[in-house]
């Protein structure tokens, strides 16, 4: 029971980080980044390469941050170099561009890291195991959940209490007015993409010791992040939090209780939410008439 909750929360934490990146990007650029799962996968692979250098725990703990940073920079390059070209042509083309990038990344990963799954649980062994109500849980798993919680708090602070957050929120509200106030909207977009992709890459880095990475995980992760995005409400971070925990726990308990259809249940929830409340549990405006 406890191990299922912990597993559920790990999954929820990761899902939250990935989906929050997706939701921030959607909230500000109005683009659903289909390549978001690829940035997650990139994070795992980069963390894997970093941890090749040494088995020093500090390096292994730092790896997700570096992976997130690299993913963020790639994200900016993608936004400035490619995505920017199709702004204003309608969401169809923005969506399809990010869709195309899934495949570009897929083969680049294959070229750089090969087709075999990679994983490195060194840090899990080094940190050891603690007993939680009689259940043995790797300390790293607890760390993972806590760091996600810290990041969630930091994000909330960044967006609601700082000037940067105010500018970002203003841009999501009305980019034309914001730019009229002298804000460089291009930079807000780039920054947003950095932040979103950082979160995905960071989440990927965190998961290296737990599940590792394989080609195909990008699409699986994307689909689940889309579920969270929709269920929580597109553009809502609070929604992403609640939906991640919901989906995380359902998956974790579903896998042990009704393994055959746990994914089907997740999709069913998404469908029901879309039908009953297309704006999601915490969605604001942005619903069609």
């Amino acid at each position: 029971m406890i191990s299922q909750i912990v597993n559920g929360l790990i999954f929820a934490s990761i899902l939250f980080l990935v989906a929050t990146g997706l939701t921030i990007i959607f909230g500000i650029l109005r683009v659903v980044n289909f390549a978001h799962g690829s940035f997650y996968l990139m994070g795992v692979f980069i963390a894997y390469s970093i941890t090749r250098f040494s088995s020093e725990p500090a390096l292994h703990l730092a790896a997700p941050f570096i992976a997130g940073f690299v993913a963020g920079v790639v994200g900016i390059a993608f936004e400035r170099g490619l995505l920017k070209n199709v702004y204003g042509r309608g969401e169809l083309f923005e969506l399809l561009l990010t869709y195309g990038m899934i495949f570009v990344f897929m083969d680049i990963f294959r070229i750089l890291w090969g087709s075999m799954p990679v994983s490195d649980p060194t840090i899990t062994f080094k940190l050891g195991i603690i007993s939680l109500g009689g259940t043995m849980i790797p300390l790293y798993n607890i760390y993972l959940i806590l760091i996600a919680a810290v990041l969630a708090t930091f994000l909330w602070f960044l967006l609601s209490k700082t000037k940067v957050g105010m500018v970002i929120r203003a841009t999501s509200f009305d980019s034309e007015v914001t730019s009229a106030f002298g804000v460089n909207v291009s930079w807000v977009y780039a920054l947003t993409f950095f932040l979103g992709c950082f979160l995905a890459g960071f989440a990927g880095g965190l998961m290296l010791p737990v599940t590792g990475a394989w080609i195909g995980l990008d699409v699986d992760m994307l689909i689940l992040a889309l579920v969270v995005l929709v269920v929580g409400g597109m553009g809502s971070i609070k929604g992403a939090l609640v939906a991640s925990i919901l989906i995380g726990l359902i998956r974790s308990f579903g896998i042990s209780m009704f393994p055959a259809i746990e994914l089907a249940i997740v999709y069913l929830i998404m469908i029901v939410v879309l039908i009953v409340k297309p704006s999601g549990l915490f969605g604001g405006a942005e619903v069609e008439s």
């Binding site: 969401e91 969506l95 889309l226 055959a260 994914l263 089907a264 998404m270 469908i271 039908i275 619903v287």
Partner: peptide, 28 residues
């Protein structure tokens, strides 16, 4: 179910429903 929605909501619904059947085909 789908045609009451447009744009990204329509797209998301079609993904969700097809994934549901995909998961079922896998498991049944």
């Amino acid at each position: 179910v789908c045609v009451r929605h447009t744009r990204i909501y329509f797209t998301m619904l079609t993904i969700a429903i097809s994934q549901l059947f995909y998961a079922l085909a896998h498991k049944l």
